[in-house]
Amino acid sequence: MDETGKELVLALYDYQEKSPREVTMKKGDILTLLNSTNKDSWKVEVKITVNGKTYERQGFVPAAYVKKL
């Protein structure tokens, strides 16, 4: 869990989004878990840094590609 009590997951593999509802992640990324009720895909939040500014983006990733921490 992070400092706000949200559950975290670790990306086990790289994943490139295939639709606007998904998010891209790299192996080793730590993501905030938002919903894990679907056995196939979990909703997560990723933090992306562009030019020194951090943005948050929500979307789905394959459940088999992440592990709860």
Rank of each mutant, 00 (worst) to 15 (best):
G28E: 02
D40W: 15
R57M: 07
S19R: 06
Q16E: 14
V23W: 05
G52N: 06
V9A: 08
R21V: 10
E45P: 00
Q58M: 07
L34R: 02
L12A: 02
L8N: 04
L33H: 00
Q16I: 14
I48N: 05
V50N: 07
L31N: 00
N38Y: 08
S36H: 08
M25Q: 02
D40A: 09
I30S: 01
T49Y: 11
A64I: 11
V44M: 01
A64L: 09
I48R: 08
L10G: 01
T49Q: 10
L69F: 09
S41E: 15
N38R: 09
K18V: 08
K47Q: 11
K18A: 10
E17F: 07
E56T: 15
L31K: 00
F60D: 03
T37H: 10
E56Q: 14
A63Q: 04
K68L: 14
K6D: 08
G52P: 00
D2H: 14
S19V: 05
L34E: 01
E17G: 15
Y65I: 07
T24P: 07
Y13T: 08
P62R: 05
T4V: 12
E45C: 15
L31Y: 09
L34I: 15
T54I: 12
T32Q: 08
G28N: 05
K6P: 13
N51F: 07
T24Q: 04
G5I: 13
V46W: 06
R21P: 04
Q58D: 04
K68E: 04
K47I: 12
K6H: 12
D29Y: 05
I48S: 06
L31F: 06
E17W: 07
A11F: 03
N38D: 14
W42D: 00
L34T: 02
F60C: 15
T37A: 11
A11P: 01
L8Y: 15
T24N: 05
E45Y: 08
M1R: 13
N38L: 09
I30L: 07
E17Y: 04
G28T: 02
G5V: 14
K26G: 03
T49K: 09
M25R: 00
D14I: 06
K68N: 05
V44C: 03
N51L: 08
R57F: 07
V23L: 11
Y13A: 10
V66R: 02
L12S: 01
L12C: 12
I48V: 13
S36T: 09
K27L: 04
L34F: 03
G59Q: 01
T4R: 12
V44H: 00
Y13Q: 12
G59W: 05
K18Q: 13
T49E: 10
L69E: 01
V61S: 01
V61Y: 01
V44Y: 01
V9E: 01
D40T: 11
V66E: 00
V9F: 04
A11I: 05
P62K: 06
G59L: 06
I30V: 10
F60K: 01
V9Y: 06
L31S: 02
L8C: 15
N51R: 08
N51K: 08
K53M: 13
P62T: 05
V9K: 00
Q58I: 12
L33G: 00
M1P: 13
T32I: 15
L10F: 08
T24S: 15
S41A: 11
L10M: 14
K39H: 10
L8H: 09
G5N: 12
K18W: 03
R21T: 13
S41L: 15
V44N: 00
K68Y: 08
P20E: 11
V23I: 14
K6S: 10
T37D: 15
S36L: 04
V50R: 10
V61A: 01
D29P: 00
V9S: 01
I30P: 00
V66S: 00
N51Q: 09
V50K: 09
R21W: 15
R57Y: 06
K47N: 08
G28S: 02
E3N: 14
S41H: 15
E7H: 11
L33V: 05
E56C: 15
K6Y: 14
Y65L: 14
Y13N: 07
S41C: 15
V61N: 01
L34D: 00
Y13C: 15
V50D: 07
V66D: 02
G28V: 02
Q58V: 13
K6N: 10
